[in-house]
Design a protein around this nucleic acid. Structure first.
Length: 677
RNA sequence: UGGUCUAUGGUGUAACUGGCAACACGUCUGAUUUUGGUUCAGAAGAGUCUAGGUUCGAGCCCUAGUAGACCAACCA
């Protein structure tokens, strides 16, 4: 059983209840059932972590099952990618299964349904059947084929299977209830004719089972105890159970379906259809484009399995619609990489720095810590010389005292090297800085232990030696969409929110030579800049790095809080347009009793100001506010006071409300009531 | 107009049988720091959608509203 200390999500609670009610733990079995028609994304990670996590918790088998019942959309490429992603996440499946493994069994069960008079072959057009289906608010009507003889149905179904009919000409339908309030129970289709090659069964079949018929029965065949899916399948549950009723052997385990909310991430889309559209129309370079919310995209971007699992754990499982902020994902990857990434130096926007007193021909190999968070991580060597690159934005000729970087006449430390002082600049005709000339305190070498080396200076800069630096391409990413929920606008296509600046390619970045032999498995922190990983496009003579995520940057935040180009400013709060004065008052009033002193007085004045816009008709219903909601009653009292002052007549309701206030136990309410009595 | 589900700080989740609304992210302070990172210390932010009811006591139970999501593919 699960430890009782941590709180359980509602799925885990259900399992604990089942166990407590006598369900044997060794019969627990789960599955992750993707359709191989696209790549896995961060939303799937929630389901993967849920199912495989449950498997780990209860030591239960978890199958990876491909729901491959539609050969017109499914491909082997996706099967391979899905396996790769699940394995990369660090999970082990008990078996790889396919719904197509069960095609024969499914067919045979369908025949028994026909024989039992529970299914029939319908030869109408899809339009006719759709018309008969009715709408959610009005019942459907029976198909004219609904009461065909069992013999005729058997014959027709056999001929469907034999390939005698054209696609679309016949379907096999369950005979349930055309008047059900659940649309899925209005004689749903079990089989349709598709003459396409299937990625596993080739041309063995030309009839394919529908999702509902295949899924629950697959669960049953695999003896899955808890079949977990997303909320949109809630309405399918009745049909899932109906199908199971038809074939269930009481001596065997009967699966149960449960539904949880799918996980959404802000500033991206999470539907395979839309992601496919981005890929096919070349808005991104592929399913694994580092801007994609796919598992493969995140992997290429530099995310780790641990960070994604942590994200799923922190996000939780529930039944309500959600949009998790990407900042949580970014927190998870920073937390992981901070502990594990090797620290190196790279200059992305170089400006030349000349140390005028440093010997011209001299090169020193300095020791640089690999990771200050990990005492066992060791050091690596970095070459230092007279001419260096530093970051252009790390220098200003003069600046305020908040600027902790290099300015003329001031000292900073070069990370792992020396303390320097800027003396002069060389500019071109337009005034652009070409070189910064500085002097180096030769006694201040890092790690030397001298007094000079431990001196406090204003800041520390990263750098590379020009003669030794290797040039590389660095790709920096911003969110793919400029809107928090790009596909949540019914009047706008999600593509309208594509961020045109989501990819920034820098072909002239300079790296310390230690990076020459980086692999895609290595994770680096470019000090003071962020976390970076070698891209899969890189070759031996062409280094390309992806920025996984930047470091938290309180300096940038302080600099330009309002001027983030792609961050759309105030987010429109759902159903919160212009608030009425009344609701403002209600809002403020609620916390009135928590306030005191100036804050209380300010809140009172706010209410009195809003009161001018409120009519008696609006406020009267609030006289009935529950006694315990003292704050609201005080607010109402204040508004009433303003109305009375402006000539509102004192009717019975007003008097009663004031009287009730005067005799209340709350002092503040009593005082306000007496003030206007 | 029908059915089903959901509603807790800005965001995501907790709160056991009804008992002081908690945690994380984010935000803001301060300290430390050879990364304006990390770490450490702290703060602000909710009367649990609304109105009733039951109860000594309600985020939780009941009633009625409101808002949002899902449901009419030969998709899954």
């Amino acid at each position: 059983m699960k430890e009782a200390t941590e709180s359980l999500n509602f799925i885990e609670q259900i399992i604990e209840e089942d166990l407590a009610a006598g369900f044997p733990q060794e019969k627990l079995r789960f599955r992750f059932p993707p359709e191989p028609n696209g790549y896995l994304h961060i939303g799937h990670a929630a389901s993967i972590c849920l199912n495989f996590g449950l498997g780990e918790t209860y030591n239960a088998p978890v199958n990876l099952r491909f729901d491959d019942t539609n050969p017109s959309k499914e491909e082997q490429e996706y099967v391979d990618a899905i396996k790769r992603d699940v394995a990369w996440m660090g999970f082990q499946w008990a078996n790889v299964c396919y719904a197509s493994d069960y095609f024969q069994q499914l067919h045979d069960w369908a025949v028994t349904l026909i024989k039992a008079g529970k299914a029939y072959v319908d030869g109408q057009s899809s339009e006719q059947m759709a018309a008969q289906k009715g709408t959610p608010t009005s019942p459907g009507t029976d198909s004219p084929h609904r009461n065909q003889s069992v013999e005729e149905n058997l014959d027709l179904f056999a001929r469907m299977k034999a390939g005698e009919f054209a696609p679309g000409s016949y379907v096999l339908r369950a005979k349930i209830d055309m008047a059900s309030t659940n649309m899925h129970m209005r004689d749903p289709i079990l089989y349709r004719i598709i003459k396409k090659s299937h990625h596993r069964t080739g041309s063995d079949w030309c009839i394919y089972p529908m999702y509902d018929w295949a899924h629950g029965e697959s669960d049953y065949i695999e003896q899955v105890s808890h079949s977990l899916c997303t909320l949109e399948f809630k309405a399918h549950r009745e049909l899932y159970d109906w199908y199971l009723d038809q074939i269930h052997d009481p001596s065997r385990l009967r699966p149960k379906q449960r539904e949880f909310a799918r996980r959404n991430l802000s500033y991206t889309v999470m539907s395979k259809r839309k992601l496919l559209e981005l890929v096919q129309n070349k808005y991104v370079s592929g399913w694994d484009d580092p801007r994609m919310p796919t598992i493969s995209g995140l992997r290429r971007r530099g995310y780790t399995p641990e960070s994604i699992r942590k994200f799923s754990e922190l996000s939780g499982i529930s039944k309500r619609d959600n949009v998790t902020d990407v900042s949580l994902l970014e927190f998870c990857i920073r937390e992981d990489l901070n502990k594990t990434a090797t620290r190196v130096m790279a200059v992305l926007d170089p400006v030349k720095l000349v140390l005028t007193n440093y010997p011209k021909a001299q090169v020193e190999m300095l020791d640089a810590e690999n990771n200050p968070e990990d005492p066992n991580s060791g050091t690596h060597q970095v070459p230092f010389s007279r001419e260096l690159y530093i970051e252009r934005e790390d220098f200003l000729e003069s600046a305020g005292k908040n600027f902790f970087r290099l300015t003329l006449g001031a000292e900073v430390r070069l990370k792992s090297a020396y303390i320097i002082k800027a003396e002069s600049v060389v500019k071109d005709a337009e005034g652009n800085i070409l070189e910064i000339h500085a002097t180096c305190d030769m006694d201040s070498k890092s790690g030397s232990g001298t007094e000079a080396s431990t001196r406090k200076v204003k800041g520390t800069l990263h750098w590379v030696s020009i003669a030794h630096a290797i040039k590389a391409e660095v790709r920096e990413y911003d969110r793919l969409f400029s809107d928090e929920a790009p596909d949540a606008h019914e009047d706008k296509n999600f593509l309208e929110f594509l961020n045109p600046n989501s990819l920034k390619v820098n072909k002239e970045a300079y790296l310390e030579p230690f990076l020459a032999h980086a692999t895609t498995a290595d994770k680096y922190q470019f000090q003071r800049l962020g976390y970076f990983v070698l891209d899969s496009d890189a070759t031996a003579d062409r280094l390309i790095f992806n920025k996984t995520v930047g470091l938290k940057d309180s300096w940038a935040k302080q600099q330009a809080p309002a001027a983030k180009p792609t961050a759309p400013a105030p987010k429109p709060q759902p159903n919160q347009g212009k608030k009425s004065a009344l609701s403002e008052v209600q809002q403020i009033s609620k916390k009135l009793t928590n306030l005191s002193g100036d804050k209380l007085e300010a809140a009172r004045q706010d209410i009195i100001r809003y009161a001018a816009e409120i009519s008696y008709e609006e406020i009267e219903p609030l006289f009935g506010t529950a006694a315990k909601k003292v704050g609201t009653r005080i607010g109402v009292m204040l508004v009433l006071g303003v109305l009375l002052k402006n000539g509102q007549e004192r009717n019975a309701a007003v008097e009663a409300f004031i009287e009730a206030g005067k005799s209340d136990s709350d002092e503040m309410l009593k005082a306000e009531a007496e003030a206007i009595a």
